[in-house]
């Protein structure tokens, strides 16, 4: 096995068996559900994937920043600003591709701002992230005008042949563009981090920046670039919200997703695939949350009480889940050793 010694070793035989077993059980569960209620199962899975898209993109943003040693709690704000700018470009030009580029650009710029604060100005990184979150609320609030109408949103694209596979087809191969892109990015960022020179150096500056510096790696420059890439990923998540999911902009439309993404990143031990697992969990919880209202009359008797819950309680679900995930996993996963620390030579 030559997949970079470190992860190969980190995943001990036991956890591999466990993961494999869990995935197998999950697959069987899905197949059983599909056999009994094909339409509902497909709908739930499709929604799970789409609901998880902004979360996994946000988590990938977090991974890029934190693997290089920079804490980023400003993902929420980056998403919001990007969602807004993407929306504005869409309003002005009606060109969705330009709108996505606008969102990416906005995310990148805010990422650069975070890097400036965290790396060059040596602002405490948690506070730097808070500045971004507050700034995002203020800016989008100030520049948002009621009555702007969008010119359409991104729609699902079916991939010929693949989309006609039962179950997998509609779930994986009939998605809108940003959702596809997020799935590809999980693989790309995994390879980038663990199989390339860039990734090795990124992980080194997140673990031991002085060691990287002594072999001639420009620590702060690499951190800048990683944080900017992270910002662009968060920007894509924002673009998903305003251009693909809702098709419009609403005040504070991120609704805490940026923070959920951070919890998911920790849950996934700062790895793309691990985070994806966490994001799917949240996607599923969100899907259930919206489904419960429709299913009120069709719930089995032993679950009837769920249908009786006030909507506010169901609304709490993702947030409580985030807290539980964080409390359950934060101690078990080891963050990059130099996370949150300014690198100075003296």
């Amino acid at each position: 096995m030559q997949i970079t010694g470190s992860i190969a070793r980190a995943a001990t035989q036991r956890t591999r068996w466990l993961t494999g077993g869990l995935l197998g059980a999950l697959a069987i569960l899905i197949l059983v559900a599909y056999a009994r209620a094909p339409q509902a199962t497909t709908a739930v899975l499709t929604s799970t994937i789409r609901q998880s898209t902004p979360i996994i993109l946000g988590a990938l943003a977090g991974i890029m920043c934190e693997r290089s040693g920079v804490v980023n709690i400003g993902i929420e704000g980056m998403m919001l600003i990007a969602a807004f700018l993407g929306f504005l470009v869409n309003v002005w030009t009606g060109n969705l591709l330009l709108a996505i580029l606008g969102a990416l650009l906005a995310g990148g710029i805010v990422g650069a701002f975070h890097a400036l604060m965290a790396i060059s100005l040596k602002v405490d990184q948690i506070i730097a992230g808070t500045v971004i979150n507050i700034l995002a609320l203020g800016f989008t609030g100030y520049f948002y005008q009621q009555g702007l109408t969008t010119q359409g949103k991104l729609v699902p694209v079916e991939i010929p042949l693949l989309s006609s596979i039962p179950l997998l087809g509609p779930v994986l191969f009939a998605n809108p563009p940003i959702t596809y892109l997020s799935l590809v990015l999980i693989i790309v960022i995994h390879l980038l981090l663990f199989r390339t020179r860039w990734g090795l150096r990124t992980r080194a500056i997140g673990e031991h920046p002085a060691a990287a510096d002594t072999v001639g790696i420009a620590v702060n420059r690499m951190r800048y670039i990683n944080v900017i890439i992270g910002g662009m990923l968060a920007g894509l998540a924002g673009g998903f919200l305003s251009l693909e999911s809702v098709g419009s902009f609403e005040r504070n439309m991120t609704n805490g997703r940026g923070f959920v993404a951070l919890a998911v990143m920790i849950f996934g031990k700062w790895t793309p695939f691990g985070a994806w697992g966490g994001a799917l969990l949240f996607g599923f919880a969100n899907t259930m949350q919206s489904q419960i209202q429709f299913m009120q009359n069709r719930l089995p008797p032993w679950l009837a009480w769920v249908g009786q819950l006030p909507p506010q309680f169901i609304g709490m679900l993702p947030y409580l889940l985030t807290i539980a995930v964080l409390a359950g996993f934060v101690g078990r996963a080891r963050p990059p050793a130099a996370l949150g620390k300014v690198y100075e030579k003296e």
């Binding site: 199989r195 390339t196 673990e207 031991h208 050793a337």
Partner: peptide, 30 residues
């Protein structure tokens, strides 16, 4: 250095090549 400049969670090989990596295509040639 007096305090070793090694990344504890990296392998020996990863530590040695860091900053002087050889690649095959886009991927590291371990």
């Amino acid at each position: 250095h007096q305090h070793f400049m090694l990344v504890p969670v990296f392998t020996v090989a990863e530590n040695i090549i860091l900053g002087a990596e050889t690649s095959r295509g886009p991927l590291l040639d371990m």
